[in-house]
């Protein structure tokens, strides 16, 4: 430490040259110390803030939960519809393929007649595929499901009619034989 520094340190008391209004500042300090309202207000404000935050969180949680439940319900509903569709599909598909086989194996029909009939079946197949697509787009599922069933029923009915027509003349001839 050099002389300059030592000189300043030795005379540092002379830097305390200012006087303050004791009472004015004390009154302000005392008022502040006696009214811890700022703290309690702050705390109240904090409580309000915490409460508001909690409310917002609960609200947000409820909304998320509501959407989750809706989603779950929607998904389970979708699953039920899909299951229903699969069951119907399996049942009617088997029935239709069985009857189509009957038509194909039938010896009384000409290949052209078979071809014409089966092309008609293909048209109904197309209609069925369109309905199935619509089903995945979640339109009016109940209505579409009904349309799919009708599509199958129409095919079965047509095949049954065809098979009936093929078999009817044969039966009448047999009966005639017996009459004669």
């Amino acid at each position: 430490m050099d002389n300059f520094e030592k000189y300043i340190q030795k005379n540092k008391d002379q830097f305390d040259e200012h006087k303050v209004d004791h009472l004015k500042i004390w009154n302000q300090i005392e008022t502040e110390l006696e009214t811890p309202k700022t703290i309690s207000l702050f705390r109240k404000f904090s409580i309000v803030k915490v409460a508001a935050t909690l409310l917002i969180l609960i609200g947000a949680f409820s909304i998320v939960r509501f959407y989750k439940i809706s989603e779950i319900n929607f998904n389970s509903e979708k699953m039920i519809v899909n299951q229903e569709l699969r069951d119907i599909d399996v049942y009617y598909k088997n029935l239709v393929s069985f009857q189509v086989q009957l038509v194909q194996k039938n010896t009384k029909l000409l290949p052209e007649e078979k071809k014409e009939f089966l092309s008609f079946m293909d048209e109904l197949d197309e209609e069925y595929n369109t309905l199935k697509k619509e089903m995945t787009q979640n339109l009016n599922n109940e209505y579409i499901l009904e349309a799919i069933i009708n599509n199958y029923k129409k095919r079965i009915e047509l095949i049954e009619n065809l098979l009936k027509q093929i078999n009817t003349p044969q039966n009448s001839n047999d009966n005639e034989g017996y009459i004669l």
Partner: peptide, 13 residues
């Protein structure tokens, strides 16, 4: 208050 009186001027400076 007594503590305040003892130190206020020094602290103000």
């Amino acid at each position: 208050y007594q503590l305040y009186e003892l130190y206020v001027n020094a602290m103000f400076n």
